[in-house]
């Protein structure tokens, strides 16, 4: 039972997450509703892409989240490897499936957008290929965390993968600037300000806020579940030792 002191911080986390959860759910629901309304009913069609541009309102937030979640996992993994903090392991483990889900949404909606606009479901250009690699990194992370009987060893192996795979994140972000790609360069986070008309930028930003708080709310719940699982495991081990 010597390692039960590790739960000191999870206790603080549990209290904090319980207090913040309703706010995150509220913000996510409201911004999602307003964002969908503006994106589907109010925002104009694009001068070139017509109504198909509305795919942007799910594609772009999902792609941003795919990168954000992986970055968070890389930070948590570094904290876990250097400071051996249990909570960091649990955050990385809880976040990985969500990140894989966001990446899947980005890939699928991008394909559905690419077919009518570019004329193809898929091309092996630098942007699309590096995002597919991100998806496989998420799957590898999930597999590694479950590959060991000892959850601590699984977490360490997955943390190393998360850190090594982090080189892919700047590659994804700058792929459209470094190489000729079929995918167009960044529209919102670019020098000289966004190249999107405000009537289209607003729903996009609201959807991005909605996706972010959706993620935070689910992460709270999933980390809570991981803490419960670790406690249960500790109790079972203690019982077996008696």
């Amino acid at each position: 039972m010597a390692n039960l002191h590790k739960f000191a911080n999870p206790t603080l986390f549990l209290r904090l997450s319980r207090a913040l959860l309703p706010w995150c759910v509220g913000i996510a629901v409201v911004t999602m509703a307003v964002g969908l309304y503006l994106g589907l009913f109010v925002a104009p069609p694009d001068y070139q892409q017509g109504e198909s541009v509305r795919i942007m309102y799910v594609h772009v937030p999902a792609a941003w989240m795919a990168l954000f979640v992986y970055t968070l996992m890389a930070v948590a993994s570094a904290v876990s490897l250097i400071w051996r903090h249990l909570l960091a392991d649990l955050v990385a483990k809880a976040a990985a499936p969500l990140g894989a889900g966001f990446t899947l949404i980005a890939l699928a909606t991008g394909s559905l957008w690419g077919k009518p606009m570019w004329g193809t479901w898929w091309v092996w250009d630098a942007r699309l290929t590096s995002v597919l690699i991100l998806f496989f990194l998420y799957l590898g992370h999930i597999a590694l965390t479950h590959a060991f009987d000892d959850p601590g060893r699984g977490a360490r192996a997955a943390a190393i993968l998360a850190l090594v795979g982090f080189v892919n994140v700047p590659i994804i972000k700058f792929s459209v600037d470094w190489w000729n790609t079929l995918h167009q360069p960044a529209s919102v986070l670019k020098l000289g300000g966004p190249a999107i008309h405000p009537t289209m930028l607003w729903p996009l930003l609201l959807m991005a806020v909605a996706f972010t708080f959706y993620f935070i709310a689910l992460l709270f719940l999933r980390v809570r579940g991981e803490i419960a699982a670790r406690k249960l495991r500790a109790l079972q081990l203690a019982r077996a030792a008696r």
Binding site: G50, E51, S52, R54, A62, L112
Partner: peptide, 16 residues
């Protein structure tokens, strides 16, 4: 009808 792009727009929102 989404300006003729219904077959792409609605599945995209559906997947998400």
């Amino acid at each position: 009808a989404m300006g003729g792009y219904a077959a792409y727009v609605w599945p995209a929102f559906g997947v998400a």
